[in-house]
Design a protein around this nucleic acid. Sequence first.
DNA 1: TGCACTAGCCTGTATATACAACCTGCGACG
DNA 2: CGTCGCAGGTTGTATATACAGGCTAGTGCA
Lengths: 250, 250
Amino acid sequence: MTVQSKPRYQQLKESIIRQISNGELRPRDRVPSENELAGTAGVSRMTANRALRELNDEGYVERIAGVGTFVADFKAASHVLEVRNIADEIASRGHRHSADVLETGREAADAAIAGLLQAEEGEGVFHIVVVHRENESPIQHENRYVLASFAPDCLQQDFSRITPSAWLSAVSPLQEARQVVRAVMPDPVVRDTLQMNDGEPCLMVKRLTWARGRPVSFARLYHPGERFELTGHYAPPGIRKNRRHLLTKV
Amino acid sequence: MTVQSKPRYQQLKESIIRQISNGELRPRDRVPSENELAGTAGVSRMTANRALRELNDEGYVERIAGVGTFVADFKAASHVLEVRNIADEIASRGHRHSADVLETGREAADAAIAGLLQAEEGEGVFHIVVVHRENESPIQHENRYVLASFAPDCLQQDFSRITPSAWLSAVSPLQEARQVVRAVMPDPVVRDTLQMNDGEPCLMVKRLTWARGRPVSFARLYHPGERFELTGHYAPPGIRKNRRHLLTKV
DNA sequence: TGCACTAGCCTGTATATACAACCTGCGACG
DNA sequence: CGTCGCAGGTTGTATATACAGGCTAGTGCA
């Protein structure tokens, strides 16, 4: 019996989510069809349909009538995360993104970083500092720590071409994020890097992201107050969101 | 025929949403049961079930097994809006909220406000300025305009007891919100009101809210940078959110 | 070779049916 | 008079079945 009081469609969903988050099913992979699931899981097609339909509503998978069900591409997973990649944001404004890597290296986590990442003090972390520009104008100073064990080949990446955030979500789908937004005065280094005026405040975002069930990266993002704003749009669901078409062709 | 290619469960949902947003169904009202809907709408119970289940997932209604389906109380509608009332936020930190009304009155909308509210220039708007305190410490300077035709009895309210935002959503469920967050330096009036230090930046939120299908209120919210932060938490759905129990007893 | 068509799979929806679990109110029983 | 239990309504889930419509690959015909 195993006293699984959970409904079967829910068990099915969780099983598929598990396969996605541990990498058995990777973005754009095909998910078994309703009939296959019905057969292997021993449920009716309607139950499999409900599981897959809800996974679709929640953004985990993308369904195409007549074709099949595919793991959603989490790279642009604004649906699940509502946290957009700065490069995408700039691109969506029709502008050009560029980035300079100011610093990369491996460090031992100090107490503060270890605490945030739920790691031991002294554990290896990569430290990356990147400045992002929108049409040559610096718009974000990114100061990021990444758990070394999560992404060992981190330092081989060219973060002037792919943003750390986009690369991280390509390594493993990001599951969760916490962020805090504050208005602060920048320290001189950040101020100069962002070419800010004296007395101009910064919008600072501190963001901690989870993957594979644990925090894997922490970032402080500084933006010049006069050239940057965070926008939010809250609409009731139900009127189907325009979902980006993530899958080009399988 | 009316060429309604929309699925019937979707038509049902939209019909109920319409009844909620035009006031036919008010918060805590009972929504017809699945069997009643099946009868009146001429669909099967499963179809009615899907409509009500999705409305529940989307936060429009609250369902209680064995009892019935009820229109959700939008007053605390953080689910739909993700925009929390400052008083609730303070209360959830276990602190005490108080507010002082600095200014109330009726004005003719200038071009800027009229444009934002999609109204004619010169149309009547209420102008409210309130400062909110958390444990006596001023934490938000709210500068709000409300379309007079939306809420004629606006000036009768005591906004030191109920926040304008909470009152507005009690008048009519808020449907949509757009907000922009920026870091700015406060003007002297705001700085003094918020008892801020010289050179301390503000976190400014500009928020435009919709109800009954149109923008009804615009607010500029200033917060002291050193004493305020906006937090966000993005988790994948599917693991059911802890829905506040909105209905005490019917 | 090239094109049209179709078989076959897929999702999307709709229905009837069934049973479980939950809640309320009422009536019977002590 | 109080309390237990049950009847009946409600949601929640599961299944079998059916049909519509989208998409693809491959067959077969010109």
